[in-house]
Amino acid sequence: MDIDALRAETPATADMIHFNNAGASLMPTPVYLAMSAHLALEQSVGGYEAEDTNASQLAAFYTEFAGLLNADPGEIAYVENATRAWDMAFYGLPLKEGDRILTHASEYVSNYLAFLQLKQRRGVEIDLVPSDATGQIDVEAIAGLITPRTRVIAITHVPTQGGLVNPVEEVGRVAREHGLIYVLDACQSVGQIDLDVERIGCDVLSGTGRKYLRGPRGTGFLYMRRALADRTDPPFIDLRAATWSRDDGYDWAPGARRFENWERFMAGQIGLGAAVAYARAVGLPAIEARVAEISGALRAALSDIPGVTLQDQGARKSGIVTFTKDGQSASAIYEALKAQRMNVSVALTTSARLDMVPRGLTDGLTRASVHYFNTGEEVEKFAEAVAQL
């Protein structure tokens, strides 16, 4: 992997170390140019005309994601963000009173809030799968929690806190064996891990453009297996999602298109498609290996600092590196590093109460999330700054 060439296509501030790629990754120049060209066209000829002119680029969004995920283009939807994509799928599932959802303590806050809302609205029940000794979901425990009313297992691939990578393929085998709908939040994993929905066995997978895919903010995507999509009733509907085919009825758009809106950010769709094409050109296996290498170097450097504790969990670790330092809150660390032009982020207990509170992480976690364009020199400078806090 030519890191220098990739960095050259990332016009970042030269003296800033960007370790916040899980939150808002740096956009490659080709992605920016694809978006700005479309916006310039909208300025010159108008939105509808620009859409017609760039129809092939808009269509490429679906084929690029299909190639990225090993899916059919008809199983891909463009949605405004990852949470809305997940919501459109989850709230459309035919869950009723007494049905049960399996999840894990590492589940993302917005997803768990949706579980709680459906518990209040429809009387569904939530069952928490315990963690194994490493902190990841205990695959062996899942089968013992499945009841005749269990309908869904929903987990997050790479949680926002803790750095772990949940064993999603093993979970998929259990879900298929028991006929469960398998919903996977891949917001933090898409773009840093080579994903294959057939290998994983998930029925739903959602994600964002702005993180490891290095696409524009305000963009997201949804994959839903066609067999499930064709029997799912989305919570919202418009003329993109369905056709008003008779006075008293309508016909859904086939596959995942029923989850889309007619009015959407076209430049964002083009930009996200370009980001996927960029990632595929770099190569997801190469990206995955590089992220593992540079995050491993960061963990090793931080572990040598007195008073610093790595807080990552799981048998396998992601590019999200989390740590605490004695006597320092995560917010204080964030501010101190920001003053030195080092870009990190903070995870608070409000993002993962069921995980962080039992672990005693009430002051939060510092997240130093690396991507393939980060360097060993940046790791050394960052560790030195943390040591001197």
Results as ranks from 00 to 15, higher is better:
Ala133Val: 06
Ile146Glu: 02
Ala77Ile: 08
Gly74Cys: 12
Gly98Asp: 00
Val152Pro: 04
Ser110Ala: 09
Leu102Pro: 09
Glu64Leu: 00
Lys96His: 06
Glu140Ile: 06
Pro94Ala: 01
Pro130Thr: 13
Ala77Thr: 06
Gly92Val: 14
Trp86Gly: 00
Leu95Asn: 11
Val152Met: 03
Leu95Pro: 12
Gln117Thr: 02
Arg151Trp: 05
Ala59Cys: 13
Val129Ile: 15
Glu97Met: 13
Gly144Thr: 05
Asn111Phe: 06
Ala66Lys: 03
Trp86His: 10
Ser131Lys: 10
Pro130Tyr: 13
Ile76Trp: 08
Thr103Leu: 01
Ala89Trp: 05
Glu64Ile: 01
Phe115Glu: 01
Thr150Pro: 02
Leu95Met: 14
Thr63His: 11
Gly98Phe: 01
Ala71Ser: 11
Asp72Lys: 15
Leu128Tyr: 09
Ile142Ser: 03
Gln136Thr: 09
Leu113Glu: 08
Val79Ile: 13
Arg151Phe: 05
Ala82Thr: 07
Asp72Ala: 15
Ile76Ser: 08
Leu113Asp: 07
Arg121Gly: 08
Gly123Cys: 04
Asp138Met: 03
Ala59Val: 14
Lys119Phe: 14
Phe65Leu: 09
Arg84Pro: 05
Glu125Lys: 11
Val79Ala: 09
Ile137His: 08
Ile126Ala: 07
Gly67His: 09
Phe115Val: 04
Phe90Thr: 08
Asn81Glu: 09
Leu68Thr: 13
Gln136Asp: 04
Asp127Met: 01
Ala141Asp: 02
Arg84Gln: 11
Ala77Phe: 06
Trp86Gln: 09
Ala141Met: 09
Glu97Trp: 08
Glu140Met: 08
Asn81Pro: 11
Gly92Ile: 14
Glu140Trp: 02
Ile101Glu: 02
Ile137Ser: 11
Glu64Thr: 04
Val124Arg: 01
Trp86Thr: 01
Ala66Met: 00
Leu93Gln: 12
Gly144Tyr: 04
Ile153Asp: 05
Val109Asp: 12
Glu107Cys: 15
Leu128Glu: 12
Ala60Met: 11
Asn111Thr: 02
Val129Ala: 06
Ala133Pro: 04
Arg100Lys: 01
Thr150Tyr: 03
Thr147Trp: 01
Asn81Ile: 11
Gln120Ser: 14
Met88Trp: 10
Pro73Trp: 06
Ile126Met: 10
Ala105Val: 15
Ala141Ser: 10
Tyr62Ser: 10
Tyr112Cys: 03
Ser106Leu: 06
Val124Asn: 04
Val152Asp: 02
Tyr78Ala: 11
Ala71Val: 07
Phe65Glu: 06
Ala82Trp: 07
Pro73Thr: 11
Asp138Gln: 05
Val124Pro: 02
Met88Leu: 11
Asn111His: 06
Gly123Trp: 07
Ile126Val: 14
Ala105Trp: 09
Pro148Tyr: 04
Glu140Ala: 12
Tyr78Phe: 12
Ile101Asp: 00
Pro130Ile: 13
Gly74Thr: 15
Asn70Thr: 14
Arg121Thr: 15
Leu116Tyr: 05
Leu69Ile: 14
Ala154Gln: 00
Lys119Tyr: 14
Tyr112Leu: 00
Glu107Phe: 13
